[in-house]
C-alpha cells in the first residue's frame, strides 16, 4: 500500500467525511434508534413512550409464533443459500468448459444479471400464478395440486424457488470469473495426475475457488435473510394468514402493519445480533480453511 503524505493532519478526515456521513446517517443512527426504541413501549399513535426494559425482547423470544418463524427463516436461508450457490457453481463449471475464449457467449450468459431484480422477481412470481403459471401446470401434471398463497408448504416452495432463481446469475458470474482466473497449467497438471473429472474438481479446482465461494457464502446468507423481502412481500401480501414468512418480514409486519414499534425494534436488534454472530462464525471456522493465492 502506498502511503500518502498530507500537508494537514485534518485533510484525510475531510476526504473521508462524505462517506462517514452516509454510514452514520443511514447505518449507525437507525441502528442506535432501533436499540433505543426496543426498550420502550411506543404508543401506536405517537403519544409518548414508556420504558419497559427487556419486556419487548422477552415478549418476542417467548412467543411460539416468533420461534416458528425463526425456524422457517433458518430453513429458508440454508436452502436458498445452498441451492443458489450449488446451481450457480454448476452452471459456471459447465459454461466454463464450453466458452473458453468465446467472449460473445460469455457476455450473453452474464447479461441475464442485467435484468432488474424486481422484474426478475415478478417474472418468477408469474411462474407460480394460479391461472397462467407454467410451474403450477407442470405440478398439476405430476399430480401436485399446487396452491401458492394458500398452502403453507406450496408457498414456501415457491418462495425458495424464486429466491434461488433470482440469485443464481450473481453467483454464476463470480464463479465463472473465478474459474477463468485459475491457471490453465494447474488444470492440465491435474488432468495428468487424476483421471476422474469429478475428483479433480473437488481436489484441485474447488479448493482454488474457495475464496470466491466463501465470499459468495456470506453474500448469499445475507441475501436470503434480508434481500428476499421483496419476493416474500409479493408472494404473501393480501393472502390468507397461514403463510411462511421470514424474520425480516415479521419485523416489517409488526412494525408497520401492527404498529408495535418496540417489539419490532427488539426483533431487528435480535436479527442484527444473529447476522453478526453468523458472520463471525463463518470467518472463524470456514475462512481459516481457505487458501488465498
Amino acid at each position: 500500500m502506498k502511503r500518502v503524505q498530507f500537508s494537514s493532519p485534518l485533510l484525510p478526515y475531510l476526504f473521508l467525511a462524505p462517506q462517514l456521513a452516509v454510514i452514520v446517517i443511514f447505518f449507525y443512527w437507525p441502528s442506535v434508534r432501533a436499540i433505543q426504541s426496543s426498550f420502550y413501549l411506543e404508543d401506536p399513535f405517537g403519544f409518548g413512550s414508556t420504558f419497559v426494559g427487556f419486556d419487548n425482547y422477552l415478549g418476542v423470544l417467548l412467543s411460539p409464533e416468533y420461534l416458528s418463524i425463526a425456524r422457517f427463516t433458518a430453513i429458508f436461508t440454508a436452502t436458498v443459500t445452498f441451492f443458489s450457490l450449488a446451481l450457480g457453481l454448476l452452471l459456471a463449471v459447465k459454461a466454463d468448459a464450453v466458452i473458453r475464449g468465446n467472449a460473445a457467449y460469455k457476455t450473453l450468459l452474464i447479461s441475464v444479471y442485467a435484468i432488474a431484480p424486481p422484474v426478475a422477481g415478478l417474472i418468477g412470481m408469474m411462474f407460480f400464478d394460479q391461472h397462467i403459471g407454467p410451474f403450477v401446470k407442470i405440478a398439476a401434471f405430476l399430480g401436485w395440486d399446487m396452491k401458492v398463497g394458500l398452502s403453507y408448504f406450496d408457498t414456501a416452495f415457491a418462495m425458495i424457488f424464486v429466491a434461488v432463481w433470482k440469485q443464481i446469475p450473481y453467483n454464476f458470474i463470480f464463479f465463472l470469473s473465478g474459474l477463468q482466473a485459475l491457471p490453465a497449467s494447474v488444470r492440465e497438471a491435474a488432468a495428468i495426475d487424476c483421471r476422474s473429472g469429478i475428483k479433480r474438481f473437488w481436489t484441485v479446482i474447488f479448493p482454488l475457488l474457495a475464496p470466491t465461494a466463501f465470499f459468495l457464502l456470506i453474500i448469499n446468507v445475507t441475501y436470503a435473510l434480508f434481500d428476499t423481502f421483496g419476493v416474500i412481500d409479493v408472494m404473501v401480501k393480501d393472502k390468507a394468514a397461514n403463510n411462511p414468512i421470514t424474520l425480516v418480514y415479521k419485523v416489517y409486519m409488526d412494525g408497520f402493519r401492527g404498529n408495535d414499534i418496540g417489539g419490532s425494534s427488539a426483533q431487528s436488534v435480535i436479527l442484527m445480533i444473529v447476522v453478526f454472530v453468523l458472520t463471525v462464525l463463518q470467518f472463524r471456522f470456514i475462512e481459516r480453511r481457505i487458501h488465498y493465492t
Binding site: 491457471p183 497449467s185 494447474v186 492440465e188 497438471a189 491435474a190 488432468a191 495428468i192 495426475d193 487424476c194 483421471r195 481436489t203 484441485v204 479448493p207 482454488l208 474457495a210 487458501h291 493465492t293
Partner: peptide, 27 residues
C-alpha cells in the same frame, strides 16, 4: 492424459497452491 503413463513438468511449475509439497508429490 492421465492414462498415458506420462508425467509433465510445466514452465510455470503448475504446482497445486493449496497443497503442501508432500501432498503435491503424492497427489
Amino acid at each position: 492424459p492421465a492414462d498415458r503413463d506420462i508425467a509433465m513438468v510445466f514452465q510455470n511449475y503448475a504446482l497445486y497452491p493449496h497443497m503442501t509439497v508432500r501432498e503435491n508429490l503424492a497427489y
